[in-house]
Amino acid sequence: MTHLEQQVTNAFEESRDDVYRYLLTLGLAPAHAQDAAQEVFLRLYVALRKGESIRNPRGWVFRVAHNLGLDWRAKERTEPLEAATEALLRDLRPPADAGLIERERMKQIGDAWKTLSPQQRQCLHLRAEGLKYAEIGETLGISISTVREFLTRAIARLQKAAHE
């Protein structure tokens, strides 16, 4: 295995599951999300092989995953994102071993999470995956000031929910 192949394999093993789950939240069915996640890392390999300079592969793979997810949705003319993700969010459960207060807190956050707009949720999701604001903006194709605004509003809403 060449050095490059090894590098991309490492990135694949480290991030494939995160990318796959992000694609699920974009409304892709599991099998499609898994294919798309595989495809993302092949594209990373191709880009690096072409000599493209990618200083943060993790930010890069989320951006490419997001675009692949949108392409796929456009091609398949799937149901609206709201409807597709509603089912995913319906049965979320706090971990069984969490204490009563933690379960209550996670339920409050989960309920409030469902009231957020898809873009607000995507911003929070990518932020929780460790992306910086600029990377979130590039992934979603929005400006950094919009990212800040989405995040501020989303977190304010969750903050309010958690303290009610």
């Binding site: 599951d17 796959y20 049965d91 979320l92 706090p94 971990p95 956050i109 999470w113 999701h125």
Partner: peptide
């Protein structure tokens, strides 16, 4: 929430 509820709650590959 993201780590312990949302991601584990999504279907596995």
């Amino acid at each position: 929430f993201h780590q312990t509820v949302l991601k584990p709650g999504l279907p596995d590959p």
